[in-house]
Amino acid sequence: MNQKVSDRIKILGFFMTCFMVFYHCGSVGNSNTFGAFDASCNSFLNYIFNTMGMVVMSHFFAVTGFLLFYHLNMKNYSSKIKRRVFSLLIPYVMWQIIIAIKYVLQNEYTFSIKNFIYRTFYLVTWPIDGPMWYVYAIFLLALISPVFLLMFKNKKVGWCMVLIIIVFLRAQGKFNIPVFTRIANHGYVGNIIWYFPSYLVGAFYGRFYDELNEEKSLVYVLSLLFLACLLQGVLPGIFYDITIRMMPIMSLFLLPVIPSLKDKWVYRLTFLMYAMHQPLIADVKPHINNLYKVVLMPDSVRNILTRVIILAIDIALAAAIYIVLKKFAPKGLNALTGSRD
């Protein structure tokens, strides 16, 4: 794999996780507005962070598909799945256990084996450690990757199938095919379907990466965007939706790699930050909001400050856990992070 692409994946993975923390902090209402300008700034900030939530998940799905299908074939399928048992499934289950214990100690969750299994493995909204739904989803998608390998036997045919599937998924959202709608309404299956175009295009680019030179690398994305533009008249919003979902692939090939951002130690914390950020937000945010009752400030400032404080705590806690486990329980660290080091 091109070193620049590899560097972009690491760098973007960290910054996208930071934005996911910002997103899950939630919108800030105009409860302490310092005039119309402050209210407008605050609303704009809420829009930015909410939109970035979609960009981030599109990035995660696209990059995951890309990495799985890079050099994937039926001969190494089993070995890739075994690696993903350790990098995805085991960390997913362990974090469900850890957060379940946390909630039990806080009297926020009544533990039972049946309920734990149900919330962990049945794709219901949401697992105990909510954001980790994505980790379980991409593990399940990896299991069915041979289906897409068959589809990607031929590059042109494979891309046509990608276009057909993406348009079908968007059209189904408008016309509501009964059987498909029932499936999509189960738990977070709808979320998986929503970001599946990103995963599918990422998988296509991973599968044919070695055949794509820089000149041809984005031709396929451009063709999809052009198709979405043409279909905008019958499927309103498709161009906006597809553009957001294709941004990650374009980023992997277009963004410059800033030397000062390469190989930073903090990137080792990315998975820990992601795994524990939402429970952390639930614990920390009420205390920050209480502080604002004493120290009044514009809503737009409060909007940014809340997210920055929570992100800083998330990074600091992840660093502390990483350093302690790295020294005293490296195998435990590998289990919690899927050996992402």
Rank of each mutant, 00 (worst) to 15 (best):
K153M: 14
K156E: 13
K156P: 01
V157H: 10
V157N: 13
W159K: 06
W159Q: 06
C160H: 10
C160I: 11
M161V: 13
M161C: 13
M161H: 04
M161W: 08
V162N: 02
L163P: 09
L163I: 11
I164Q: 00
I165N: 04
I165F: 05
V167N: 05
V167I: 13
F168Q: 04
F168I: 10
L169E: 02
L169W: 00
L169N: 03
R170I: 03
A171R: 03
A171Y: 09
K174L: 11
N176M: 11
N176V: 05
I177N: 01
I177S: 07
V179M: 10
F180E: 07
F180H: 01
T181M: 09
T181E: 13
I183D: 02
I183P: 00
A184R: 08
A184K: 08
N185K: 11
N185M: 10
H186Y: 14
H186R: 07
H186D: 08
G187A: 05
G187V: 02
Y188S: 07
Y188R: 01
V189W: 05
V189I: 15
G190A: 08
G190I: 01
N191F: 08
I192H: 03
I193L: 15
I193M: 11
I193Y: 09
I193R: 07
W194M: 15
Y195W: 11
Y195L: 11
Y195G: 10
F196Y: 10
V201I: 12
G202T: 12
A203H: 02
F204P: 14
Y205A: 12
G206W: 07
F208V: 12
F208K: 09
Y209R: 15
D210L: 08
D210E: 10
E211A: 14
L212G: 08
L212A: 08
N213E: 14
N213M: 09
N213Y: 06
L218N: 15
L218M: 13
V219S: 15
V219F: 13
Y220Q: 13
Y220K: 10
L222T: 14
S223H: 03
S223P: 01
S223R: 07
L224M: 15
L225D: 10
L225Q: 09
L225I: 14
L225R: 09
F226C: 15
F226Y: 11
A228E: 11
A228P: 14
L230V: 15
L231S: 04
Q232A: 12
Q232I: 05
G233M: 12
G233V: 15
L235P: 05
P236R: 01
P236F: 05
G237V: 04
G237Y: 03
Y240M: 12
D241W: 05
D241S: 14
D241G: 12
I242W: 04
R245E: 13
R245M: 12
M246H: 02
M246V: 03
M246W: 02
M246C: 11
M247L: 15
M247G: 00
M247Y: 05
P248N: 08
I249Y: 03
M250A: 15
M250F: 09
S251P: 00
L252T: 07
L252Q: 03
L252G: 04
L252W: 06
L252I: 06
F253G: 04
F253R: 06
L254P: 00
L254A: 06
L255E: 02
P256E: 04
V257L: 01
V257I: 07
V257P: 02
I258D: 02
I258F: 03
I258Q: 02
P259C: 02
S260K: 07
S260Q: 06
K262T: 08
K262L: 03
K264L: 09
K264N: 01
W265C: 05
W265S: 14
W265N: 13
